[in-house]
Design a protein around this nucleic acid. Sequence first.
DNA 1: TGATCTGCGGTTTTT
DNA 2: CCGCAGATCA
Length: 734
Amino acid sequence: MSIYDTLNREQQEAVYQTEGPLLILAGAGSGKTRALTHRVAYLIGEKGVKPWNILAITFTNKAAGEMRERVNQLVDFGAESIWVATFHSTCVRILRRYIDRLGYDNSFSIYDTEDQKSLMREVCKRLEIDTKIYKERAILGAVSRAKNELITPEGMLKSAEGDYGKKRVAQAYEEYQRMLKRNNALDFDDLLMKTVELFLSCPDVLDSYQERFRYIMVDEYQDTNTAQFQLIRLLAQKYENLCVVGDDDQSIYRFRGANIRNILSFEKVFPNTRVIKLEQNYRSTKNILKAANEVIHHNYGRKDKTLWTENEQGEKLVFRQFMNGFEEADYLVEAIRRRVREGEAQYRDCAILYRTNAQSRLFEEKLIYAGIPYKLIGGINFYARKEIKDILAYLKLVDNGQDDLAVQRVINVPKRGIGATTLNRAMDYAQAYGISLYDALMQASKIPGMSRGAGKVLPFTVLIERLRAIKEHSTLPELMDAVLRESGYLKALEEEGSEEAQGRIENIDEFINKVTVYQESAQEPTLSGFLEEVALVADIDGLEEDSNYVVLMTLHSAKGLEFPYVYLAGMEEGIFPSYMSIHADEAQEELEEERRLCYVGITRAKKALVLSAARQRMVRGEVQYNSISRFVGEIPEEYIEEQKREPIREVPRAAAYAQAKQAFQNKSFESKQFTVKRADTLEYKEGDRVRHIKFGEGTVTSIVEGGRDYEVTVDFDGAGIKKMFASFAKLKKI
DNA sequence: TGATCTGCGGTTTTT
DNA sequence: CCGCAGATCA
């Protein structure tokens, strides 16, 4: 009996077909990860393939980690030398090594969307583009689409012949690229495009990677864009041992450039492709699966397949309509609480899914009020918070002196009396001499008209130089500490003393924790390594399996996950499918994508699925009246039970709404008091021995009563003296 | 130069 | 409804 006997016939075929192009069409819950991991094990164990000759590309870091772990359990050794990574981190690793061939410095920065926007604003200013007419966002969107299609600024300029608007966008694209390069920075899309460019212009580099990656596997293939496809094609074209796994019915990233043709015409690009379909579902009940099948059958132009399962019939799906969003949230939270109370489920078995991040707020408030632990995925990224971005900018500047954006961000944070005038002079000077902004500041005394400003700039450059020196002989947490202290950033926050500032300090503490974890867990911790890890984390990467909380996230984030109990909220026309998709130029196409998203949502559920809608809902400060989503109607009655539909009540709608809102706010006000109120007593006192999750054991040296929490100082045996908030630090008396 | 005010517009989804 | 960019004032 071998490990492969537990697989079904199709899965086995996928495992044994190791040579040549292979397309696995894997339906939701069909055990594709199992097939993939066994395939890797088979390659290593039976075919004698060296682990380092295998490349596995996943969609998120979380998926990569899981894959590595599961392979680890199957093979005796060598799993750690398999290259398992996302497209973006793969590209970064390659570019860190070779991007100098394209005229960039290997210590390039990675710009996030906020950085991109600042840069584009600057571009528009320079080109005198009126951002009232051409919005930065729109231009960036066009640039991103171009990059995903591997279209260069020159290419765009050519195709813009005669179209003034398009020409302006192309010019902006060109200038934007020029500025990125001058800042020695790449945006997300560049990571892919520059790697393709590198391979095309340096055949020797391409060849070395073709030799290295003799066996290539790509997960979530339906969500690849043209640039990603070309990247794979180039890498695979020598040996053609390329295995892609995907499900055209789960393609939900068209808006991000995902090209469904990549899956639909894979067989044309690789003529000898073997196609295997995995259609047996191991995840959901019959009712759930059949409902999903029915919904997705309303789409055209899909590869035909029908999932089936041997699982039990299960409960019928439930649909309920409520008067408004508050009642909906109330009910779902109550339903979860009941399931847990009755021992049917644990919190971690339950997920609330919705179309847009904004919908999460109501659920959060209700969950807090109910005292139910929850984890919110998505929304504003931790690393996008102002204070974190500020610290990151310092670190980036220490790492890459050409990053003008980072300089602009922190030169006057905290206040150093360096204003717009000084900064502009320095920027003009930098431009005139073709040097970076930071280098210009280094020669501040030479800059005309800056006699006064120069005196203020000097301490700043001295600070950065000092930090650079510290970086050379310190660990990252030590460097962080130096940044926080010597820049005066922490002090400024502490002096502010507001509740907001306190929150920021807590975030910074959390950030220090992350740096510490990185320092301790990375094989070879470096500043650049840390910065890129930060740039490439996805929200979903923060989801830990072993903790026990209700999960809240968008349908997009839920892809690839499964939960016993799923609550699909906001099933309303205009919400899901979204208003945008209904009114788009290509409404048919976009609605089909929404339907695929719905299919993804339904198929996340293992045991039970509840769908809900609200008759009226507050969207962007306005009351909206929505009818029930068409997707609900696409599920035949035999699989779904409609528990309650709100009658149209003869109350003035606005008044009813105001009432509901009032009631809700009263409750949530109580809840805030309830949750924010610090514990009346702490389980430890001064002099006690306590344990902290990261710092280990230590002695409490002081406890100070703060505004809404206790500030505890602990002298840790290993980590030294730390100050922390009691509710945040979760210290345990020992 | 910094701090506050105000008006506008924006989100659908994310590596 | 919220956040932010630009304008205005101290």
